[in-house]
Design a protein around this nucleic acid. Structure first.
Lengths: 162, 162
DNA sequence: TATTGTTATACTCTATAACTATA
DNA sequence: TATAGTTATAGAGTATAACAATA
């Protein structure tokens, strides 16, 4: 493992990502908010998902995921189907309209990124994408191992002292 | 320049960073909110700054920066000094208490990152940090070239028709 | 009784706009 | 008149907690 300062340097680098994220967010169409759009991207990438799976992938509580999905469903971007295996649950999937919107947004943000990074070699673009993916993967393991996802922590017993 | 799909792939990767950012944010001490903490990090890294410079580095409008600075100043983390060159402006700097808090937060987030990425080779950690820095730099140029920062667009005249 | 989702409430972040003080 | 910064207001994201329906 590397010395601590190396990770702290990386913390700074991640903070700096906020600037980029805000730029891309501001460029989103009026109705396509960041949260619901992230839902579309995940459904496109992973296919049919249950609400709890989606919340896990977003790294938020189910209540937050539920809000985003409701927003997307109201606009016809996401379809909710009953889960044949569990009556309490639903299977979420991307509608054609949702797929179309996602492609538009993705293309638009891609153009902004292309404009900002036009002088980057392909190799660096690929490498950054790959490292970001691995970063998320590393955090997934960490989270589910030690820390409960938010929004369900209330279920943890209060464990009154004996 | 690379083909569009390469950039769109990167857009997805950036979206995925949200998960990591939320994890780190949740780990922050109760009073150290993400916005004000980002202010501390920038003042530590760049030294004395004016409000407008800070807002630029954060990629937000001056009003937003002002709020974060007010929060930090109330708690004694940031010191405001009059700018000798311009009576309207102020010079912001990190107080000793602010520096201490920043080191704590940075160390804590660093540990979380170290835990999640303990199996990464040093080379990859360095490379990711470097690419993230370059990403921000690329976006800086783009923003100031084409798009005004938010919060000052209001100055644009309404241009009533003659 | 435990689990899946939904909804209500509260807090933070951000943008817009109106305002004050200085240049 | 233009610029630096503050503040009020509104909209979005997220967490907590209470709730409904199903297992």
């Amino acid at each position: 493992m590397a010395e601590p300062s190396r990770y702290e340097e990386l913390v700074r680098g991640l903070g700096v990502i906020g600037v980029v994220k805000r730029s891309l967010t501001r460029a989103l169409p009026r109705d396509a908010q960041p949260g619901p759009t992230a839902v579309l991207a995940l459904l496109d990438h992973h296919g049919e998902l249950r609400m709890s799976e989606l919340a896990d992938l977003l790294g938020v509580g189910i209540s937050v995921a539920s809000r985003h999905v409701a927003h997307a469903a109201e606009r016809g971007w996401v379809v909710r189907a009953p889960d044949p295996l569990d009556g309490r649950s639903q299977l979420l999937s991307l509608s054609p309209a949702g797929g179309e919107l996602l492609r538009e947004v993705s293309a638009h943000c891609g153009r902004l990124l292309a404009e900002a990074l036009h002088d980057w070699p392909d190799e660096d673009l690929d490498r950054l994408g790959e490292l970001l993916d691995r970063l998320r993967t590393g955090f997934d393991g960490c989270r589910s191992r030690d820390r409960p996802s938010p929004g369900r922590a209330a279920t943890v017993r209060t464990t009154p002292s004996p």
